[in-house]
Structure formats: C-alpha cells, structure tokens
Design a protein around this nucleic acid. Structure first.
Length: 566
RNA sequence: CGGGGUGUAGCGCAGUCUGGUAGCGCGUUUGGUUCGGGACCAAAAGGUCAAGAGUUCGAAUCUCUUCACCCCGACCA
C-alpha cells in the first residue's frame, strides 16, 4: 500500500464538532468522516481497522460454533407487531413504506427476523443447539447521537442468537458466547469488564454487559472494592443494614409547607435535613397505579422497579393522576393511600420521618413508617451510588464510567413463544425453543479501542487491528537510489510474509511523516533513511513504548516479525 | 421534545458589540531554497459569510423566521 495512492488525509487541528479524545483522533487521523449527525463514512484506513475487528469476531464466533448468516435490514412491520415490540421500540425505529404502501422498518436489531428464520428451519431436537450470527448495519433513530461512532444512527453490529432445547442447555450456549466475548475484546487490545446488566426492552431476565472503562462512558458502573461484584448502575443492588433514621419521636404533627415541591424545599419548610424526608412517587405500571417511597436524598431506580413489578411499561403518573389516588398533586404521601405502597429497604424501621400529608401545602413530621404506613412490599428500589454496600459481601462499592461494547442476554422464551417456535423432542413432544442473544457494537468497539489507547501524539493501535501493522518511511527515496531500493525490497519482503505495510512514499520532510505516522498510530514504524543506511542499518520504532532499535538491513524482517509477535 | 452554544474557503479561527461590500493560520496549486520530529521565500486558486424574509442608500454585522451541528437534560414531589 502506497500513501500517495491512498485516500489518507490527516488534520492538524481538532475538529470543532468533536468532544471526546477518541472522536477527535478518529477524525484527525482521517479514519472516519462525518456525513451528518450520527452518520459516518469509513475511509480506506478506517475501514481496514473495522475489517480487522470484524475478522477477529468472525474467528471467535466460528470457534465457538456459531454459523454466520446475513439477514435483511429492511423488515416488514408485521414481525414487530407479532412480538409486541412495534409500539415498545416504536420511536427509535426508522419506518418507511414501499410502493405497495406496505409499512417497513429498518432493523434496529434482529430477534424477530432470526426467530422467524430459525422456526422454519428447525423442527427437531436433533438440530439443537444452534447459534447463528451476522455482522450487519443496524439503524436506530437515537434521541441524541453523539461522540462519533459511540452512539450513531447507523452502525455495524455483530448480533448472534442461540436456540436450545432447555434452560440448562441455553446456559451453556450463553457461557460459550460469554467466553468468546472475553477472547474477542482481549484480541482487540481492549480491557472490557463484564458487569451485570438490565435487560431493557430486549427482554429476558439475565444479562451481562462488557464495559470499557472510560470517563467519557455513558453508563455508570458500580464495582465492589473487595469482591468480584460489578453491575451497571441501572441494575446494581445494595445491602442495607440498620436504619439511619433517628429513633427519637415526637407526636405526628401536620406542618404547613406552602409551595414546597422538591425534597429540598420541603425539608427547609419543615426544618429537618433532606434525608429525613420520604419521597413519594406515584407510578402507573401497565396502567395500574402504585406508590413508591424512597429516602429523600436517594433516586428511585425505574429499571429496578419495573423488574420487581414484572411490567412492560412503567411511567410516572402526571399531577392529575397522582391527585386521583393521593387526593392532591403536591405534598403526596403514603399514609392512608388506597394503592399499593412499595417501600425502599433504606426506610425499614424508620421511626421519625417526614411525609407528604396528601393535603396541598402540608407535610407530616414525626411519622413512624412501621406504625402508620401499610407497606405492600419492601425492596431495594433506589439507584445505587458509590459508598453503598455491596449486595454480595457488604463492602463499599466504587463508581466508574463505562462504554458498553457488548451485551449478552438470556432471553428465555419471550420471542419463541410469541412466534410459536417449537421443536419435537425425543419423546415426540412439542417444546418451545429457549433463546439467547448476543451483541457487539463493532463500530463502537473500534472507537473504544482508541479511547483506551492514545497519547499526546495520537492513536496507539494494538498490532491486531492497526490499519497497517507497519508504516514504512523511506526518507530520501526521491534522491537516494540506495534508500529507494532498500525500501522497495523491504516492502516486498514484508508483503510476501503476510505483514501489511503502508509505505509513506510522499516527497515530504521527515518530521511531517513522523507526526502523521504517530497520529494514525501504526503499531510499528520502520524508517529507511540515507543517514542510517550509510551504517547499513534501518530504524524500528514501536509506537506504544517509543522504543527504537537499529537493525542491519538483512535482519530487518526477522526483527519486525519479533516485535509484531509481542 | 426543553435549555444552552456554534454556523465566515477543505480544516481551525478573527471580523459582528460600534453597518461601508471579507481576512489570518494550516491545507491545496506553481516556482525556488531546504530536508531525521508538523521548514522558509515568492506567486496563485478557493467564499451566494448556513438559508429565507425584513430594516437601510448600503447588511457577515441590526430584526424576525427556518435549518444544520455540538453540549446538557428529557424522571423525582
């Protein structure tokens, strides 16, 4: 590959549109170019990286026994109505109509399509287990695309789906994918931490996300400082021991709190610290009303509540609906309400708290929850924060940010039941297949590698996915015959040995070539200059360590191979 | 969808407050001198100043509308 014949252009300045380092570097190094918000072109160099990641994924999927297929991105809406996700994912799906006026969608994921495919192919337990995968463009009408490839409207995903005869068998398929993911991210030079995760609108009851730790990550991760527990903040649980609330009691007393809407305002009006207020929230779970109460300084975690309730749609009630069940829309509280009250464990045993009086402009202080509130169920309901206690070992949890590069789910029979995807077992009985699904954001993974591997000079690619393993820089080729000859011979030698090499054959000054090579981040830079050739050597420089070695021309190939094998 | 910010040459920016017909750096083209960490000199190409409407003798600049992009939020009594 010759630089002068390849579309490569680097930028000296940070593009104004980019905020995080990896996005800036991808643009500056000329790996991607923006078409519009959330839409990017991969340049020849960027595409090489993408292909290398894809190939690693293919190798590991194949090794894990999965078979590659390719499904349509364009899909009839009927499939989505069948699974019930047409309305659930509705707003994030791109919809369009064909000339027959048929409603179509651009696939944001493929559980429906793959279930339809597999149910027609598989009818016997003898054909199971079966895992298929594809690497394909997905479309999602994101609320807010951002950070370049991190959250785009169109992106490349590897999605795999497993089908099994039973839950136990499905566990094995899940584990095989989990193990493959560990290998994939490792081979891409990424440190990706598996954490327990919420299943969102994909469904199922058990999942892990693979997180790349980075301050720019969009997800919060809670990890135990002592044991191996780690979970997405959406999912994370905490151990609660003892009540932080005073046991001193006065008589329950109504206090005027005019206009107080927030915890802070209420606490101030009553004259107590924020954490003595009990926050009361009215929700509709698939239309059924309930009240959730949590400590005033904590946030209710809707993901957790939804999981506890087992509902598909959970929404906070508007003022009018709250008033219908609590008698008022300000100052609501759990005393005497006719709807079930779900209380956070942090309130258990609370003896002296403040709640809304269900009377506009009033709160009640010195309330004993145990005595005065009929709690339907106690659960861990709040969003876990750093310093909360690990649910497994009780030690403090620490908080970090993460980029989700992969997600594995045990789906159970959510889709196979909806589609009636069955097989005959050895006793000629019909059973519903048990499913799992497994995604890797391929384009996001590329950028996550950059986010984790850079320095002040640019990107530092791991050898496994560097756009080219070697950047060969002849410094004086246009005027030094010997330099050109050595360089061309080495280029051929490398190619013959399966090492991909980019030759910077531009008539540019050395400094500029060095800067560009560092910015793009080729794993190994090989310099052929007349100065060192006079001594019969060429220079090898590792991008990551900056370590430079001079080797005789004849030994160059051997030395390059040794460095790349590291 | 709400809030904030930004739109001027391929990229990064100044000029806008105080209206007078567009500039700097990088990049590009040509010539020359250079040549181991983003060289220098000279010449040149490249812009309906996001779009539309208005005010004005005159608008990048003032007013209104629209659009695009970026950031924050979209849930807390």
């Amino acid at each position: 590959m010759r630089w002068s014949k390849t579309l490569i252009s680097t930028l000296r300045d940070d593009p104004q549109e980019a905020e995080i380092t990896s996005h800036k570097l991808m643009l500056r190094a000329g790996l991607i170019r923006k078409l519009a918000g959330g839409l990017y072109t991969f340049t020849p160099l960027g595409l090489r990286v993408l292909h290398k990641v894809e190939n690693i994924i293919r190798e590991e999927m194949d090794r894990a026994g999965a078979q590659e297929i390719l499904m349509p991105a364009l899909q009839p809406i009927e499939l989505w109505e069948k699974s019930g996700r047409a309305s659930q994912m509705g707003s994030s799906m791109f919809r369009l109509k064909d000339r027959q006026d048929r409603q179509m969608v651009l696939g944001p994921t493929h559980e429906e399509v793959v279930t339809d495919y597999i149910m027609h192919e598989i009818s016997s337990y003898r054909q199971l287990p079966c895992t298929v995968y594809q690497i394909q463009t997905k479309f999602r009408d994101e609320i807010r695309p951002r950070f370049g490839l991190m959250r785009a409207k169109e992106f490349i995903m590897k999605d795999a789906y497993s089908f099994d005869v039973s839950l136990d068998a499905a566990d094995a398929s899940y584990q095989a994918m989990f193990d493959a993911y560990v290998r994939i991210f490792d081979r891409c030079g990424l440190v990706a931490k598996p954490v327990e995760a919420d299943t969102g609108n994909i469904g199922g009851n058990h999942s892990h996300e693979f997180m790349v730790l980075a301050p720019s990550g969009e997800d919060g991760i809670l990890a135990c400082t002592s044991c191996s527990y780690a979970a997405n903040q959406e999912r994370a649980e905490r151990k609660v021991s003892g009540s932080p609330y005073s046991t001193k009691m006065g008589e329950p007393t109504e206090v005027p709190t005019p206009g107080a809407r927030t915890v802070e305002e209420s606490a101030q009006a009553v004259g107590v610290p924020n954490d003595q207020i009990v926050k009361s929230l009215v929700y509709l779970a698939d239309g059924k009303p309930l009240m959730a109460i949590v400590p005033g300084t904590r946030e209710l975690n809707e993901c957790k509540l939804r999981r506890i309730l087992g509902c598909s749609l959970l929404e906070m009630a508007d003022d009018e609906t709250s008033a219908k069940y609590a008698g008022t829309f300000g100052s609501i509280g759990p005393i005497g309400v006719k709807i079930p009250v779900y209380a956070d464990l942090g309130l258990k045993g609370a003896q002296d708290v403040v709640v809304g009086a269900n009377k506009t402009g009033f709160h009640i202080k010195h309330v004993s929850l145990e005595a005065q509130v009929k709690v339907a169920e106690w659960h861990d309901l709040v969003t876990v924060e750093a310093e909360d206690c690990c649910p497994k070992c009780g030690q403090p949890l620490a908080m970090a940010r993460g980029i989700e590069v992969g997600h594995v789910f045990k789906l159970g029979t959510k889709y196979t039941e909806a589609f009636d995807a069955t097989f005959l077992d050895s006793e000629k009985k019909s059973n519903v297949m048990v499913m799992g699904c497994y995604g890797i954001g391929v384009t996001r993974t590329v950028q996550a590698v950059v986010e984790q591997n850079f320095d002040k000079d640019g990107i530092i690619w791991p050898a496994s996915i560097s756009p080219c393993q070697v950047a060969l820089l002849p410094l004086d080729a246009h005027k030094d015959e010997n330099c050109r000859r050595v360089s061309e011979a080495l280029e051929k030698e490398l190619q013959a040995n399966g090492i991909d090499v980019l030759v910077d054959d531009r008539e540019e000054r050395p400094g500029l070539k060095f800067k560009d090579a560092d910015l793009i981040g080729f794993t190994l830079r090989v310099v052929v200059g007349s100065r060192s050739l006079e001594k019969g050597v060429i220079e090898l420089r590792e991008r990551k360590s900056g370590e430079t070695t001079l080797v005789p021309v004849a030994e160059a190939l051997h030395a390059i191979k040794a460095i790349l094998a590291k």
